[in-house]
Amino acid sequence: MDPFVVLVLCLSCLLLLSIWRQSSGRGKLPPGPTPLPVIGNILQIDIKDVSKSLTNLSKIYGPVFTLYFGLERMVVLHGYEVVKEALIDLGEEFSGRGHFPLAERANRGFGIVFSNGKRWKEIRRFSLMTLRNFGMGKRSIEDRVQEEARCLVEELRKTKASPCDPTFILGCAPCNVICSIIFQKRFDYKDQQFLNLMEKLNENIRIVSTPWIQICNNFPTIIDYFPGTHNKLLKNLAFMESDILEKVKEHQESMDINNPRDFIDCFLIKMEKEKQNQQSEFTIENLVITAADLLGAGTETTSTTLRYALLLLLKHPEVTAKVQEEIERVIGRNRSPCMQDRGHMPYTDAVVHEVQRYIDLIPTSLPHAVTCDVKFRNYLIPKGTTILTSLTSVLHDNKEFPNPEMFDPRHFLDEGGNFKKSNYFMPFSAGKRICVGEGLARMELFLFLTFILQNFNLKSLIDPKDLDTTPVVNGFASVPPFYQLCFIPV
Rank of each mutant, 00 (worst) to 15 (best):
D2L: 13
V8I: 14
R21A: 13
G25S: 12
P33D: 00
I45Y: 08
T55S: 10
L57E: 01
K59L: 10
G62A: 00
G62R: 00
E72I: 02
R73I: 05
V83G: 03
L90T: 08
E92N: 11
G96T: 05
H99F: 12
R105D: 04
F110A: 10
G111L: 02
V113L: 14
K118N: 11
F126C: 03
M129V: 15
T130A: 11
F134N: 14
G137W: 10
R157K: 13
S162P: 01
C164A: 09
T167S: 14
F168W: 13
C172N: 08
P174K: 04
P174R: 01
V177G: 01
I178D: 00
Q184T: 14
Q184S: 15
R186K: 07
F194D: 03
L197S: 01
L201W: 04
L201E: 03
N204V: 08
P211G: 10
P211C: 08
W212R: 06
N217T: 10
N218R: 15
I222P: 05
Y225R: 10
Y225A: 11
H230I: 07
N231V: 12
K232Q: 10
L237D: 04
V248I: 12
S254W: 06
I264V: 15
K273R: 12
I284Q: 08
A297K: 13
T301C: 06
Y308P: 00
H316I: 03
I331C: 13
S336V: 13
C338V: 13
R342C: 10
P346T: 06
V351K: 00
V351P: 00
H353K: 03
H353G: 02
E354S: 01
D360H: 05
P367Q: 02
A369N: 15
V370R: 00
K375W: 10
I381D: 00
I381M: 04
I381R: 00
T386D: 03
L391I: 08
L395S: 04
P404C: 07
L413V: 06
S422T: 07
N423H: 15
E438R: 09
E438D: 10
L440G: 02
E444V: 04
L445E: 04
L449M: 13
T469A: 13
V479L: 15
L485N: 03
F487R: 01
